[in-house]
Design a binder for these strands. Structure first.
Lengths: 192, 192
DNA sequence: GTTCTTACCTACCTATAAGTAAGTATAGCT
DNA sequence: AGCTATACTTACTTATAGGTAGGTAAGAAC
């Protein structure tokens, strides 16, 4: 079969949407199958258990992040466009209906996640943090960013803020997200 | 009956714990009843539906906030101790096992929440924002805080950061929460 | 002392969750 | 033409979800 079915991809896409709108415990195989017009068992064929689906979702995010960050890298190592890329990415995801951060969704259910999913989530988070830490350090050295203290801490703070901002924006409207992002810029000494 | 049963309060307490550890869709009446040693129907007696339980939980948080903020007010209107009170409150809740912010937990499931619960959540959030905005404005006038821009925006950003920080701290350890709170202080021009 | 109310309990119901077993259509390979 | 792998399907199972009907023990009100 030269052309593989796109059902697997459609399931992942729909699952991402449902995950970011309802959390991992907030959607079922039935929700996916009914909206895609396939049977429940078709999902089990591709993802034997919900645990496997969770794992695939985390790995999907991880891949997206890698693609996105290597795209940032193409700017030639300058820090500012990379940071702006993160902001644009966050806002675009939000506008596309991926309301809350997938990582935020998983963090709510963290204790009940099976061990492999937890590990994958940790790896994903570590990579994200490493990338943003490097961007912040580079930007400070280049004199673009101005902030005190450890860059790693600052990176953690920015991710926390973005994650929280998405959740708040969902309730108070999309404008909140832009406002909070503007504030992060201000705190990094970037004047508009 | 002079002495009312404390079952209702015990249910609310346990539900809060479960909500902040698993999200609203992550626990069942059975989880509560089995851990409290009562029957399922006892919970339905006090909270006819899970919607009613959610409503009671939000109102409980709202009451706690009111108590807490009026306690802050007792400091005589000075802004700094009020802000520090929020930080202490957040860290204490986290240490007591109330991992994620109850509001964060609800925001994940926001779309499926029944309308009255959503409205109660909105009122709770509005009150919180109003309070923090006033604290920030007062502190800036008193010369204790130094920040640019709108105080309401800043308040929104701080809540978003705290909410995200709790979720991150759950995975990366409690130290993260303290680190991010320290950063909020820095960004408000408070030197340690 | 009967009645009402509170605060439950036992025993159930229906819907839905995740998951499985076995069958089938289609395409490519030999 | 026959075999095999892929990508499903129908038709279940078992467990659990939220919710309900009806009963009951015990104190309060009259």
């Amino acid at each position: 079969m030269t052309r593989l079915s796109d059902t697997r991809e459609r399931i992942l896409e729909k699952a991402t949407e449902l995950l970011t709108q309802r959390g991992f415990n907030g959607f079922s195989y039935r929700d996916i199958s009914s909206q895609l017009g396939v049977r429940n068992a078709a999902i089990h064929y591709h993802f034997a258990s919900k645990k496997d689906l969770a794992l695939a979702l985390v790995e999907e995010f991880h891949r997206t992040l890698r693609d996105q960050t290597s795209e940032f890298m193409a700017y030639g190592g300058r820090a500012l466009p990379q940071l702006e890329g993160l902001f644009v990415f966050t806002e675009r995801q939000f506008c596309e209906g991926l309301c809350i951060c997938p990582f935020g969704a998983f963090s709510v259910d963290y204790d009940e996640l099976p061990e492999p999913v937890r590990q994958a989530t940790d790896r994903f988070m570590d990579d994200s943090l490493k990338w943003l830490t490097r961007v912040l350090e580079t930007g400070r050295e280049q004199g673009e960013f101005h902030f005190q203290g450890d860059a790693g801490q600052r990176a953690m703070g920015i991710f926390a803020t973005l994650q929280g901002a998405r959740q708040m924006a969902r309730i108070h409207g999309p404008a909140v997200l832009g406002g909070i992002i503007a504030q992060i810029r201000t705190d990094l000494g970037l004047v508009d």
